[in-house]
Design a protein around this nucleic acid. Structure first.
Lengths: 388, 388
DNA sequence: TCCTTTATGAAGGTCTCCATAGATAGTCAC
DNA sequence: GTGACTATCTATGGAGACCTTCATAAAGGA
């Protein structure tokens, strides 16, 4: 919608961007004729633009496709290896760093195990170990990163500060941006982990292309994230999807009750839920009742969000989503009395990498935002630097 | 974000649009030098663009401002009288048609009284009477309208059909688009009335410029509308903000209890609420208790939306908002136990024209969307025609 | 080998924007 | 009233980017 305009060089810039975008979205090499059709430019102009972009290093020529009639056409591809972004999942039990290229393909990753008793300082050191491992595996340096997004539990406010954390006592207030900024000069974003998982599902997972969705993190600490109009939604202060804070939903206690009820048979907390879901799957009536009770509470908060937002899809993620075969039908039944139209509900398809992947997606989004709203001229590919 | 590019004529088009936008947003005449600064174009190019736009009728020259040094500069203004849009409030008790120019200034309006017993056919005829009155008052014809948006109670789905109406038994399924299309050739949109009221408040009222807000329609039929990222939010099927459908909120009965409780002293339903609020204002303890009970129920549904969306602002509209001095503090108190951060709450400032005004705003948005994403060339101002 | 098909490369023309310089029409000071 | 000052207006020339056209090149198939 933003009308820009400008002089001839600006026009050339727009046409270059439009060519780069066409090549990138095609995901396979394009001939000059195809590119001309997609950009709406004349063939001669496309030749000019492409020559320029190839010299600068944004695109590369690939061998012509054999077996066609007529003179073989030159083909070009977007050089998605021109830059890379980093997504980091700073979790309770692990730190996972994922490096992707500009096309979002995973190039390398690094993983370090931690636990809920790991102190802030050690956890932050684990971040560097995971990042370094990923950099080594990718054969890249810190200065090759074009953008970084780290996911953390807790509410992340507008300034990137972490507040309201349940699991880790010394985590609130941690300055992740400052920490990452010690060795990374590129733009850095911090984001809530559920939000990143939601974004990953919407880009690469079960919700690919869905515009409006509610992501339910079902696990020992339930949570929710929203994608609205295809974009991650932050609200005014970052505390969105927090409907579980209403006592009436019972979200703060429902997981504990599931794990400590008679159907859990006294298993350790980490295992109890899985055991209850397993028993319910096997036909244990007591376990089924416990799952139903859990689903009814989950449905209260979910219905509040669904009725508010009328999403197309609800994605079930988090630890309990591994038992979606049991939990999902129970949730659907529990939602029906509340909703006019129960939306589609699907279990997440991405595994435990989803938060780090979502981080990479968001970092890529920010790279795109800067690139496609560029004011200056198109130079060679290079890592953007933080303003501060 | 949409990269367009194209040939020289497209560049000229972009620069023309950018000039038109600058002139329109300035809301006062601009000299060529000022326009050159705002668009980033050279003076000479601005002369070209402006000459062309003036010939086509998009802008007009105004007398130079006196009293300045140097040769007096020519000044130009956007011709907001080049086109008009129509906003219609098809309400239970009235039909109100408002005509605004392209700057959103009200040019004329027409109003016809109806009531809850008016049949669909008569209500639709009342729509034409109100529209004709507005057209006559504006000195315009139906073909001068560039866009129409009508607001109706009930859920309005993607196709513009009205479903789920409480107040009017024969209203569901009414084909307002078809009805208006009989005499209006321009694009027609149907929208839920609360959504339009919310939009009006966000554009012209108490929520001017707020990006994320929840609009609460408090009245005998409570409802809600959402504005997210500065845009009206529809969700997947149009049924957003319907938390009141959850039994647990008590939204379906809370107004009735307020009106039929002892504090109402047996007044007629239409008057009872006003009486209760008045008594509460005067210090009547029983009435205050009734208002508090109402606010607690209202807060349940409101908290669900606020916790979900974390809006900057909640706007209180609808009939009961005339008693905001009593209701608003009670609502704020009732929200506090539920919310981490109680958002700002303000009563609506627009009067009973808000729905029709919101309709005009939305129609203008659609005109803008078409205009600024134009693929062809810029011709003279003319009413767009429906595709069908 | 020739023909068809498709892509390439160069030339000429058009459009838009920019920079520069001189002309113009006001205000301000005397 | 006259002259200085100032900001704008008008006209001209030049540069950049795009388009169209046409001759040329390279492959497969008859």
């Amino acid at each position: 919608m933003q009308v820009s305009g400008g002089d001839l060089q600006r026009l050339r810039q727009l046409n270059s961007l439009s060519s780069i975008r066409a090549l990138r979205e095609a995901r396979e090499p394009l001939t000059l004729t195809e590119l001309s059709a997609r950009t709406g430019l004349s063939r001669a102009s496309v030749v000019d633009v492409v020559t320029d972009l190839e010299q600068r290093g944004w695109i590369a020529e690939v061998p012509p496709a054999p077996g066609a009639m007529g003179r073989p056409a030159k083909r070009y591809r977007f050089r998605s290896d021109a830059g890379h972004v980093l997504g980091i999942d700073v979790g309770v039990h692990k730190v996972l760093a994922v490096i992707t290229d500009l096309a979002g393909r995973i190039v390398a990753s690094g993983r370090v195990a931690v636990d809920r008793h790991t102190a802030q300082r050690e956890r932050l050191e684990a971040v560097w170990r995971a990042v370094d491992a990923a950099l080594v595996a990718a054969g890249l340096g810190a200065s090759d990163m074009w953008g970084v997004t780290a996911g953390s539990t807790g509410v992340v406010n507008r300034e990137g500060l972490v507040t309201m954390v349940n699991d880790l006592p010394d985590w609130p207030g941690v300055d992740l941006v400052g920490h990452l900024g010690q060795r990374l000069a590129c733009p850095i974003t911090i984001e809530n982990d559920s939000k990143l998982a939601a974004l990953a599902e919407q880009r690469l997972g079960v919700a690919a292309g869905v515009q409006h969705l509610v992501y339910l993190h079902v696990g020992r600490r339930p949570g929710a994230a929203l994608i609205i109009d295809g974009r991650l939604y932050h609200g005014f202060s970052g505390a969105t999807g927090e409907v579980g804070l209403m006592e009436i939903t019972g979200w703060s206690t429902m997981a504990g009750r599931l794990e400590s009820g008679p159907a859990a048979k006294g298993a350790a907390p980490e295992e109890a839920a899985r055991q209850v879901f397993g028993a319910a799957r096997a036909g244990d009536l007591e376990a089924q009742a416990a799952v139903d009770a859990y689903a009814r509470h989950l449905a209260l908060g979910t219905a509040a969000m669904v009725l508010t937002l009328d999403p197309e899809l609800v994605v079930l993620g988090g630890g309990f989503s591994r038992s979606a075969d049991v939990l999902l039908p129970a949730l659907r039944r529990a939602l029906e009395p509340h909703c006019v139209r129960v939306p589609d509900i699907r279990p997440s398809t991405l595994g435990e990498e989803c938060v780090a992947l979502g981080g990479a997606c968001l970092a890529l989004d920010h790279v795109d935002d800067r690139f496609f709203s560029l004011e200056g001229s198109i130079s060679s590919p290079a890592a953007p630097q933080r303003a501060s």
